[in-house]
Amino acid sequence: MPTPAPLSPSAVVSALRAAGCVFAEDEAELILATARTPGDAAAMVDRRVAGLPLEHVLGWAGFHGLRIAVEPGVFVPRRRTEFLVDQALAAAPHATVVVDLCCGSGALGAALAAALDGAEVHAADIDQAAVRCARRNLAAFGGRAYRGDLFDALPTGLRGRVDVLTANVPYVPTAEVPLLPAEARDHEPLVALDGGADGLDVLRRVAAGAPRWLVPGGCLLTETGAHQAPAAVRICRDAGLTTRLAVSEERYAHVVIGVAE
């Protein structure tokens, strides 16, 4: 069988543009740089044209200076969530114990592990594919990932020891899930998107449990939507955390930060 001829950049750009990819030139460059063979490149273009998220096509996502492995069916880390990482590092620059709940690919835990040299990092998710992916991404930092429902997944020895607790919880209201872009709606797990009637069901559970796991002065950080931010702040305050909202207009990111007393 003859070896497929290499695809020209212009041919890839044309195929992606015809499929509606807004950043066709950038995506073509990434696909051609990632593909190992012309056959791989052609298959990757076909998958992207069919609507698979670019990160699933590539097998990785850029996040906070790292290349995070992302398997098909796993939530793709958003670049706006880098703001949460920055807020965590500003709030606890010397953190030694980090927990990442609803970890997905483990991007948050990996980014914090990379910045906090020697920190003990644990992550958890209810989805098996996500946990498998997170283990890959945390391995280089000696991090651990567990499958289970929020705090139930964690070793009990972490209780009262956590300096930074990140929880990029699902926060899309159930009724708004069908309105999401097809890339998310069709290719990411519903459990990573649907946050219940008002989008805050999982946050309520995380906030209620956080004080028992954080050290005094330890912080919970969670991302939320702009219209949900006031309610999310109230939820964390009602859980006994000293709470504030950090906003990045540039990234359209809203991060609730709650500090344990």
Rank of each mutant, 00 (worst) to 15 (best):
L193P: 05
L220C: 13
A207G: 12
R205G: 05
D194R: 03
W213T: 06
V215D: 05
L214H: 07
L190E: 02
L214I: 12
A208P: 02
A210N: 10
D201M: 02
A184S: 12
L214T: 02
G196F: 00
L190P: 00
A197T: 15
G199Y: 03
G196L: 04
G199N: 07
V202W: 04
A207P: 06
G218K: 11
P211C: 14
E188S: 02
D198N: 07
R204Y: 10
L220V: 12
L203N: 10
A210D: 12
H187R: 05
V191G: 02
P211R: 11
R185V: 01
G196K: 01
A192K: 00
R212I: 08
G218I: 14
A197Q: 12
G195I: 03
L190Q: 01
V202G: 03
R185F: 06
L190K: 01
L203C: 11
A208E: 14
H187D: 06
A184M: 09
A208I: 07
D198G: 08
A208W: 06
G196C: 05
L214A: 09
E183T: 13
E188V: 00
G199W: 04
A184Y: 06
L220D: 11
L203T: 12
A208F: 07
E183C: 05
V191C: 14
R205D: 12
L214E: 09
A192M: 05
A197G: 06
G199T: 07
P216Q: 13
G209L: 12
P189R: 01
R212W: 13
V206D: 11
R185W: 06
G217F: 13
V206A: 04
A210Y: 13
L190C: 02
P189M: 02
A207E: 10
L190T: 00
R185D: 04
L200C: 08
L214C: 04
P189W: 03
G196R: 01
G209Y: 07
R212H: 15
P216G: 11
G196E: 03
E188K: 00
A207S: 08
G209T: 14
D186Y: 01
G217M: 05
R205V: 14
L203Q: 10
A208M: 07
D198E: 13
G196S: 03
R205F: 10
A197K: 09
R204C: 14
R212Q: 15
L214V: 11
L214Y: 11
A192L: 03
D198I: 07
W213A: 14
D201S: 13
R212G: 15
G217W: 13
V215T: 15
D194E: 10
R204M: 08
D186M: 03
R212Y: 12
V215S: 12
V191K: 07
P216H: 13
V202C: 07
G195P: 05
H187Y: 15
R185E: 06
A210F: 10
D194N: 06
L190H: 04
D201G: 06
D201H: 02
A207D: 09
G209F: 13
D201K: 02
D186S: 08
L220N: 04
L193Y: 01
A197S: 14
C219P: 00
V215E: 14
G199E: 03
L220Q: 00
G218V: 14
G199S: 03
A197R: 15
W213D: 04
A197L: 13
L200S: 09
V191W: 07
A207N: 04
A207R: 05
R204F: 11
G217V: 15
